[in-house]
Design a protein around this nucleic acid. Structure first.
Lengths: 219, 219
DNA sequence: CGATTCCTTGAAGGTTGTCAACGTTGGTGG
DNA sequence: CCACCAACGTTGACAACCTTCAAGGAATCG
């Protein structure tokens, strides 16, 4: 249980039970890039699990409850339970594919497209986990943080948000975002290949044996 | 052994013995993004290893010799040999960290910075594998492909290359690139955290038991 | 040697960044 | 309770960066 705006550190894997967090990288010129946003149910720290370097550069975006899995234990269990190892491999592959998709969007889309992509991505992820029902959800990122995430400045984020509001596509106020025109949003995001993370080859349960998330949580 | 410009397909993991390849994503608006460039010694197809969907969207950039590892076999071996599973997890984590670093650069740097980053990245990777000695290496990407990789247009790539040549920083001609001012290049690339992929927690050999690369190849 | 792809350059315009200023909100302490 | 402060949001003017469009030259391949 951490407050918003805290740094998560430690040599562990975290299962994010509630709240949002993000992973960032700071460049030596002072700029920051948010490279990942973690939603409730996500697993944090997988990509550094085999490094001695402790987890860092993880920032909570809201109040957060995490369940820490000591990396040592996780490793022990990885050694002991093959399905878990496969599950971790699958998760990491999924993470990499998500990163590729995001990079392609950043590379190819203008500001409106990137914003549309982001809004849709959070929307589908939250919906898949049944954390929202309607077309409105809580978006805790500040506009500065959205800028860091999409590689744009606050000022421009603000302008594009206004233009999307005026076009009756999305409306964001008080960290609460409403999708007014899902079709328009989708066409802005050029949203191909969004549904490509399914098709697991390992049949049956993908439930892990260690403290990693269970059931729907890491879909 | 494939020619340049071919698509690699199949349900396998490939070990790239010689030559360059890349992974791309096409958006529905017709734009293409190259999301990864594979150098000799790299492993291709890891992130889709647990999907039924066959490998695709891998393009050879040069003539290439690959050693295919049937994914089924690879999986069998993953089940049997724990160190291999750990090695795959480490590789995937490394891949993800590389992707994050690249994304941060694309998000934060202008055209000169991105180009500098790319040139340096290939340089250090090739050097680490002792595939080059001096400050010159063969860069098989066309300028169009560099544009797809860095999220810029050919025209602009061309102009920035010229400006870097005029500034005596790098020189590219006939797919052969020479670093004239390593220090200047590094400062352009804002190259923090480049050396963060070391520090493996699993001691001893990281050599795999299956057809995956051995020794220095996947450093 | 024709044809295709790649490279190169100019001019013009659009998207995004920078700078600056002000309004709003929420929290903290007098 | 109010005053203050800090962080966040909003807007305008202008400049920089990058794209688009267009065209011609160079390289490469059958």
């Amino acid at each position: 249980m951490r407050k918003a705006g805290e740094l998560l550190v430690g040599n562990e894997i975290y299962h994010l039970r509630a709240g949002w967090a993000c992973q960032f990288r700071d460049l030596s010129n002072g700029r920051r890039a948010i490279v990942d946003v973690y939603l409730p149910g996500d697993v944090i720290g997988l990509d550094t699990v085999l490094l001695t370097r402790p987890l860092k550069e993880i920032l909570t975006l809201t109040e957060v409850t995490t369940e820490a899995v000591a990396a040592e234990d996780a490793l022990m269990n990885l050694m002991a339970y093959r399905p878990t190892a496969l599950y971790v491999i699958w998760l990491l592959g999924q993470r990499k594919r998500r990163a590729d998709r995001f990079l392609a969007a950043i590379s190819c889309l203008d500001a409106r497209g990137r914003l549309a992509m982001m809004v849709l991505d959070f929307y589908t992820r939250l919906r898949r986990r049944k954390l929202i029902a309607g077309s409105t959800y809580n978006l805790p990122l500040t506009q500065v943080q959205i800028g860091h995430y999409l590689g744009l400045t606050v000022v421009h984020i603000n302008r594009v948000l206004r233009s999307l509001r005026e076009a009756r596509i999305v409306n964001l106020e008080k960290h609460c975002i409403t999708i007014l025109d899902l079709e328009g949003l989708t066409s802005l995001a050029q949203n191909e290949g969004m549904a490509n993370s399914s098709g697991a080859r390992i049949g049956g349960r993908s439930a892990p044996e260690i403290g990693l998330p269970t059931g729907k949580s890491a879909l």
